[in-house]
Simulated scan of single mutants.
Amino acid sequence: MPDAISRYLLFPLLAISILAGGFLEETLWHRPKPTNQPKTYSAESQDVSTSKTENADDPAFSVKLIPPIKSEQEAADEANEKYEKRWNDWITIFVIGGGTLVILVSQLVVFGLQAHRLKQTIVKMDEVARGQTKDMGDSIREATRAADEMGKVATAINETVVINKGIMASQRDFWQRQMRAYMSIDIGTYFRQTKYGHWRFEFRPNIINNGQTPAYNVRVLSNCGLIESASSIANFDFTVNNENIRSSTTISPRQTKFQRIVFNRDATFSEIRRILRGELVFHVYGAIKYDDAFKEPRTTNFSFLILLPKNKRGAAVWLVTDSHNDAD
């Protein structure tokens, strides 16, 4: 700041010094010395004036005007007058020029200060702009890094959510598997009725709910027939007509009910002989349809081969086939 002001004031001060030097040189060194001698006029000047008067009417006479010779006093007075006039002129010039110069110098100083302040402001604004640009770049880079990290966090959260959903689904499925109803069918009893050479057979397997919750809307689709051997089960058609469904019921947990399955016609005497010899066996098969506590439809299939005893007091043999004995 002081260097800038000194640069701005150097040329005006130099101009003032030159003006003051010229003024002092003019006023002090060239000032005339005063004299007290009285004014005198020479005889020659008087003679010239007289001769001019006397010979004025002579046409052949030419007049040459010669300025009067000034005395030392007149010359000194004239010099003093010129000095005073010059002094007054210099005073006027100095006052007006000095005042103008002071005004110009003041304006120059003000303009210099304004320019200096403006330069400082521009430099400061440039520094601030550079700092803001750097800060903005750092902020953008930090925001980009944060966005990348947030993207990674979001990806991890998404993966965690997917994993948690899988865990929840597995837990829900595991819990449902533990709590749902499981319907199964087990061996039971049979009844044989004989009247006037007609034989009717009825089989009663037991239906059991092995689950922790009730089984709703339980329906049993069943059928009974005669087949020659177990080997014919491989290609057997286990389809049961839905018209055989009579009713539906609810079976509570750990509760057992029997299902009546009747051979749909009377067995002939020939078939009885073959049944007693083991050449024919009864085939009882079907499916249990029900809904568990979670409103999911379920099915349990069953298939038995039943070997009858040769007398009424013997027990029948219930054999589970290797086909159509599954559940969901």
Rank of each mutant, 00 (worst) to 15 (best):
His283Lys: 09
Ala267Asn: 04
Val218Tyr: 02
Ile66Cys: 02
Asp292Gln: 05
Gln107Cys: 06
Asn36Cys: 01
Lys39Gly: 02
Ser42Asp: 11
Val48Thr: 08
Pro32Cys: 04
Phe203Gly: 00
Asn242Phe: 07
Ala147Pro: 00
Asn88Leu: 15
Asn164Gln: 11
Val161Ser: 03
Asp292Val: 07
Lys39Ile: 11
Ser62Pro: 06
Lys124Cys: 01
Ala230Asn: 08
Phe191Arg: 12
Leu28Thr: 04
Lys312Gly: 15
Ser232Glu: 15
Lys33Tyr: 03
Asp89Trp: 15
Gln259Val: 14
Arg273Asp: 14
Trp29Thr: 09
Gly22Glu: 12
Leu10Ile: 08
Gln255Gly: 00
Tyr216Phe: 15
Gln37Ala: 14
Arg200His: 14
His198Leu: 11
Arg130Glu: 12
Ser62Glu: 12
Gln212Lys: 14
Lys33Trp: 02
Lys85Pro: 00
Gly166Ser: 10
Glu159Tyr: 06
Asn88Arg: 15
Asn210Ile: 00
Phe203Glu: 01
Gly22Cys: 14
Glu228Lys: 15
Val281Glu: 08
Leu308Gly: 01
Thr35Asn: 12
Lys85Asp: 07
Arg177Cys: 03
Ala156Glu: 12
Asn210Val: 01
Thr155Tyr: 05
Glu202Asn: 08
Phe201Arg: 09
Met125Thr: 11
Leu308Lys: 07
Gly98Leu: 08
Phe94Val: 08
Ala76His: 08
Phe61Lys: 13
Ile306Cys: 05
Gly314Tyr: 06
His116Pro: 00
Ala315Glu: 13
Pro309Lys: 09
Val110Phe: 04
Leu101Cys: 01
Gly21Phe: 13
Thr321Lys: 01
Leu308Cys: 06
Asn325Gly: 00
Pro67Val: 04
Thr40Arg: 12
Ile185Glu: 02
Ile157Gly: 00
Phe191Asp: 02
Met183Thr: 05
Glu142Met: 07
Glu78Asn: 07
Asp291Val: 11
Phe238Lys: 00
Gly21Tyr: 11
His198Ala: 09
Arg141Cys: 00
Leu319Asp: 06
His324Gln: 02
Leu28Lys: 02
Thr299Ala: 03
Lys312Asp: 14
Ala4Trp: 13
Lys82Cys: 00
Val95Ile: 15
Val220Asp: 01
Leu108Tyr: 10
Glu44Cys: 01
Ile261Asn: 12
Phe304Ser: 05
Ser248Trp: 07
Lys70Leu: 14
Glu25Pro: 00
Thr35Trp: 00
Asn206Met: 15
Asp138His: 04
Pro214Ser: 10
Ile288Phe: 02
Leu9Lys: 04
Arg141Ala: 09
Ala169Lys: 13
Glu44Lys: 10
Lys165Ser: 06
Gln107Phe: 13
Pro34Asp: 05
Arg313Lys: 12
Leu308His: 07
Gly197Arg: 01
Met136Val: 04
Leu226Pro: 10
Ile227Asp: 04
Arg219Ala: 15
Thr250Ile: 12
Trp29Gly: 00
Ile18Ser: 09
Met136Thr: 06
Asp186Lys: 14
Val161Gln: 05
Ala60Cys: 04
Arg313Glu: 15
Thr299Met: 13
Ile261Glu: 09
Arg313Asn: 13
Pro297Glu: 07
Glu296Asn: 13
Leu14Met: 13
Gln132Asp: 07
Thr155Gly: 06
Asp291Cys: 02
Leu19Asn: 12
Ser139His: 05
Lys124Arg: 09
Cys224Asp: 14
Ser222Ala: 15
